[in-house]
């Protein structure tokens, strides 16, 4: 709860600040707080992804983008009233929808009734992989994961090509490798 309050404060700061460099730093802070919330919710793997992608790689990529653009945000050309109303209505709808969710951590929630028992019982025999999550990701949903990896690889290549666009101005050795 405290962490969520801090995250809300950070979000307000991100919206209000005009210096994009400070916004990048605040984004990293937001990701670390989000990862802490994930850990408290017992989703350690999601927290690890959030920390590595949000706090690590996103900061680096945003800084590379700042090098290509200016570091001050221009004033918006129109009033933010209509976007605020739309965002507020969406938020209310989401909160209303969350009332229908089962309580946190209940064992007989619908998501635990579908295929999860089958995976838990048969994944070792089917795939010979001791970790159930790994077997689901890499074997049962192998093609799905392959497609995801292809998409992310393509996006990574595109981002690297964009970021090294000024190589001709300032030649140098290889830039620092950014790994996901």
């Amino acid at each position: 709860m405290v962490l969520l309050t801090l995250m809300a404060a950070i979000t307000v700061g991100v919206v209000r600040l005009r210096n994009l460099f400070a916004v990048v730093v605040l984004g990293g802070i937001y990701s670390f707080l989000m990862a802490s919330v994930m850990i408290v919710l017992d989703a350690v793997d999601v927290a690890m992804t959030e920390a590595s992608v949000g706090a690590g790689v996103s900061t680096v990529l945003m800084l590379g983008t700042l090098y290509l653009t200016k570091t001050e945000e221009t004033r918006p050309a129109h009033t933010p009233l209509l976007p605020l109303v739309v965002a507020g209505i969406t938020g209310i709808a989401l909160v209303y929808g969350s009332f229908a969710l089962p309580p946190f951590g209940v064992a007989d929630a619908p998501i635990h009734m579908h295929v999860a028992p089958y995976y838990l019982e048969n994944s070792l025999r089917d795939t010979l992989v001791p970790n159930v999550v790994t077997s689901v990701l890499a074997s049962y949903r192998g093609y799905d994961t392959l497609g995801e990896t292809a998409v992310i690889f393509t996006a990574g290549i595109a981002v690297l090509m964009l970021l090294k666009g000024r190589r001709d101005v300032k030649p140098g050795p290889k830039r620092k490798r950014v790994r996901r």
């Binding site: 670390f32 690890m48 590595s52 900061t59 090098y67 300032k170 140098g172 830039r175 620092k176």
Partner: peptide, 30 residues
């Protein structure tokens, strides 16, 4: 969870290093 803490520490260093390098050289590929 200590293992994950070590991973966080590594990521924290990456972020800070990127920021400082951006300050020092104004360019990450320097």
């Amino acid at each position: 969870f200590l293992d994950i803490g070590i991973l966080y520490a590594l990521l924290n260093i990456i972020g800070t290093l990127a920021v400082l390098k951006f300050f020092r050289h104004g360019d990450l590929s320097h």
